[in-house]
Design a protein around this nucleic acid. Structure first.
Length: 488
RNA sequence: GGCGCGUUCGUCUAGUGGCUUAGGACGCCGCCCUCUCAAGGCGGAGAUCGCGGGUUCGAAUCCCGCACGCGCUACCA
């Protein structure tokens, strides 16, 4: 069997879109699953849409997601270059070959004539608006003269009438188009650059791509590609057109209705594992009930047969849940560098917390967060003293007798030497017993005193993490506040 | 307008003629656990399988028509 070779071929017109991420992922998964190669090719054939830095960003984002390619612009490979603007001569030669064979021709029509033509056809309500093959009538000498005169020209595909183009799509089955509805596609633009259609077909062939896995928006232009393969005398690759990613209103996923750049999700604190897991399930499933996957497991399970036909709405809720799931499945050691990164970006950047301390905080918070940065926002009291106390919790928990209880507790804690979690628990139990009160009468006011909030990790964890001295100080401060009645 | 593709709970989906009173997940609601909040466990509401015909003893599953949605229809990809 031929080697499986897939490719992700984005245009550098901005940042990596989540739809693009999924296309890249499926190409990657399919290649890896079949011991093949995954290639990155940059399709920068539209100079006007080129965005500075987009290629670097694309590469960086792909690498962040760990979608490593075997051949690509920055790492090279046997079929380079992998940037289309560096392959202009190749496309030109191929276009000329087509002209020689009579499957393509020079066209000198101005954009104005083309626009007028379209308007005319639209007015006459012709079924299919397309080029009228006007320049096909030119004889070789006329063409030669025009070119020598420096007239601008494009090269068009000479689409034959009354034929049916059929091809098999791995996801959609047999698809067929009538050539009468296919326009004489421009292959080479007047600036000498190829259009997507030519460049894509030529490169896929030259780079020995075996499977073209791309978005559904390309399905309608596939017959043009099929024609090209035929005219070049090349074997065509297998096609697989993926369903689109949709906005909540079922229109094509767009910026207006939320974030679309992978970069933005990364910045918001989504884990690459969650993003990959989520996006993999948008339009594909292994036929079982599993929802949680790591990349290597996806490789193991992936198949094109499991890809759906219909578009999928991008549901932020589920992504959020998956992010929390991935956080919960990570070890404290894996989470530590992530927390440190977040800390660097926070107002605590200049503080120096020990790894041991941070690890305790992580284990206390791990199951209470959906984002790593929530360790800092939801439990800031691990990084500084509470700057306020929750009003509702004060009403509920800080009673006139509270200071008295807390004082007894301080005395008891003071007796402890380098206390463990259990020591704190014992101390609290004995105070409750001594005072003849329910533990809750101690725990809730204490939590508020220590954290300023009524929600959070177990009280003994809280005590243990903060440590004896800090606990004492915070209780003192709280007692002060309560007795002063100066509670915010 | 033309052509193409699609249509199962709000969302992602399982389902390829009888195992289906259509299963799972997210979200929502409730209960349990419990020092709080989570996590976890258990349970609930939620889909006349887009609509209408047909084939069949039997259809979400096969066929036909229609509707709706989306994509393409550029010297953009």
């Amino acid at each position: 069997m031929e080697e499986v070779r897939t490719r992700f071929a984005p245009s550098p017109t901005g940042y990596l879109h989540v739809g693009g991420l999924r296309t890249a992922l499926y190409n990657f998964l399919f290649a890896k699953k079949n011991n093949g190669k995954f290639i990155l090719r940059i399709e920068d054939t539209d100079k006007s849409r080129y965005v500075e830095g987009a290629v670097e960003n694309l590469i960086q984002t792909l690498k962040w997601c760990e979608l490593f390619y075997d051949e690509g612009p920055d790492i090279g490979g046997p079929f380079g270059p992998y940037i289309q603007s560096q392959r202009l001569e190749i496309y030109k030669q191929h276009a000329e070959e087509l002209i020689k064979k009579g499957h393509a021709y020079y066209c000198f029509c101005s954009p104005e004539r083309l626009a007028a033509l379209r308007e005319e056809q639209s007015r006459l309500k012709v079924p299919q608006i397309k080029y009228d093959k006007h320049c096909l009538k030119l004889n070789p000498q006329e063409v030669k003269n025009k070119i020598e005169n420096g007239e601008l020209y494009v090269i068009r595909l000479n689409v034959p009438p009354n034929q049916t183009v059929k091809f098999h799509d791995l996801i959609r089955g047999e698809v067929e188009f009538d050539t009468n509805i296919i326009d004489d596609q421009i292959l080479i633009k007047s600036d000498g650059y190829p259009t997507y259609h030519l460049a894509n077909v030529v490169d896929d062939h030259l780079m020995k791509i075996s499977h073209v896995i791309r978005g559904e928006e390309w399905l309608s232009s596939t017959p043009k590609h099929v024609l090209l393969y035929e005219y070049f005398g090349w074997e065509k690759p297998q096609f697989a057109h993926l369903p689109l990613l949709l906005n909540p209103d079922r229109s094509k996923l767009s910026k207006r209705q939320g974030d679309v750049a992978v970069e933005e999700y990364r910045a918001k604190g989504y884990l690459k594992e969650a993003l990959i897991n989520f996006v993999a399930l948008l339009g594909w499933n292994a036929g079982d009930n599993r929802e949680f996957y790591y990349l290597n497991e996806l490789i193991e399970k992936f198949s094109l047969e499991g890809v759906n036909k219909s578009g999928a709405v991008f549901d932020l809720n589920k992504l959020l849940w998956l992010n929390g799931e991935h956080i919960r499945k990570k070890t404290v050691d894996e989470l530590l560098p992530l927390l440190k990164d977040e800390l660097k970006k926070s107002k605590y950047a200049s503080n120096n917390f020990s790894d041991d301390y941070l690890k305790l905080v992580i284990s206390a918070m791990q199951e209470r967060i959906d984002f790593v940065h929530e360790i800092i926002t939801k439990s800031y009291y691990f990084f500084e003293r509470p700057n306020s106390y929750e009003e509702k919790a004060i009403q509920k928990n800080w009673k006139p007798e509270t200071p008295k209880f807390l004082k007894v507790l301080i005395e008891e804690i003071d007796l402890l030497n380098n206390p463990t979690k259990e020591d704190f628990e014992n101390a609290l139990n004995s105070v409750a017993e001594k005072l003849q009160i329910n533990k809750g009468k101690l725990i809730h006011p204490l939590r508020l005193a220590l954290s300023g909030t009524s929600a959070g990790p177990g009280i003994y964890d809280l005590l243990h993490i903060l440590g004896k001295d800090e606990v004492k100080s915070r209780i003192q401060i709280a007692i002060q506040r309560i007795s002063e009645g100066k509670i915010q």
